[in-house]
Design a protein around this nucleic acid. Sequence first.
DNA 1: CGCCAACAGATTGTCGACAATCTGTTGGCA
DNA 2: TGCCAACAGATTGTCGACAATCTGTTGGCG
Lengths: 218, 218
Amino acid sequence: MPSPTTIAQKSAALPSSEEIARAIVQGLEAGEFAPGQRLVEADLCLRFGVGRQAVREALQRLKMVGVVDIVPNRGAHILHMTPEQAALTLEVTELLFGLAARTAARRIAAGSGTATLEHAIGELDACADGAAAGDYMRARRHLFGALAQIADNPELTRLLDQTRVHVLRGQFGFAGLRQDHARELAAIGRLVLAGQCAEAEAQARAHVERIRLHLERI
Amino acid sequence: MPSPTTIAQKSAALPSSEEIARAIVQGLEAGEFAPGQRLVEADLCLRFGVGRQAVREALQRLKMVGVVDIVPNRGAHILHMTPEQAALTLEVTELLFGLAARTAARRIAAGSGTATLEHAIGELDACADGAAAGDYMRARRHLFGALAQIADNPELTRLLDQTRVHVLRGQFGFAGLRQDHARELAAIGRLVLAGQCAEAEAQARAHVERIRLHLERI
DNA sequence: CGCCAACAGATTGTCGACAATCTGTTGGCA
DNA sequence: TGCCAACAGATTGTCGACAATCTGTTGGCG
């Protein structure tokens, strides 16, 4: 188990359409795709150097994840997310993140992969006193992944992975709070490591709710 | 708003790949596809009378929803779900269904579409004293749809719709309890209509938990 | 007799081309 | 001038064909 991040075989036999979907999300993360922007298939073909079939499959996936919307004869565009919708999304995220923290804390004794969790906590600590946005997002992704892995609930893992995508889309201006968030997430990770189910869940939910309330104040 | 069920234009301009995905889920519902069964693209093409592109897009969607698993050069197969995994899935379902019931109950005064909810409750009442499995599943789907519509939370709607698919896959042998379930769901619907947030959520979660416990006893 | 390599069939991954649909523009007409 | 119809460009929807990969089988060799 060398890499804690989502696997991406370095240069061999990738399903291509999965790679495209991932790249589009990364592009969204990097701000290259704006919400509401239209995604023309031909453009994506040129950009990624693949055929339209792969692009279409990637778009279908992103539609199911809620990243893009596809209107039948009119193509795909990045789903626009208003602060209100982001707040509603966080209502769901709160539940899922809480369940993940609680379940992971309950199973922490069962053995599997505390190493990845400790690694993620370390990254978050590194972000606690200033870091680039990309580093923080990566660290958070690692924490989510570690919790999902430990929780060992396939359905939760699936939904949490989708959630991860949405959270970043809800970032309307939290640049100032990034360090606080990193500290909070690290604390949650430590609670999980300590096996404190109830407290871990409560803190996880509180973390998400704080974000939601801050969002509703705009 | 004529049809409370998920829209399916009768015979005009269907996105085709979406139609295929829906048909596969229906086939699963009808028991024509067994868990673990392999889905060969060419077979599906013949069965639905479309090209492979549409089939592939449908499979990509179903993969994101967690219905099928796709192994890179080896095709797609229906995801096998053990009773243990079904129980884990229900842990997540419990949260989502509870949130849907609570939110719908809170917003019931806000106006939109109590008619569809009342309709779903009527269908469930009809199932309370004996009905075919298909009728019950349809009624339950309508209840879920009505709650999602009233809750008016896009993210919740999306995940609840995915959940709906999984629930039916977790039906390992509830034939005898079907009538009880119908009664419970109808009661939950009425609590929502009455605007009883807390009680609606509690009953919704209790309903799912009963199913989960029954499942773990096997 | 058992094991490994080469082969044949089946299936998936990818690309290019054509048809159907939509969007914005032009031209005619009251 | 203002409005509606026809048109051209762009984009999506669909299909067929070929290449790459995998699976199971056959044949040869130790």
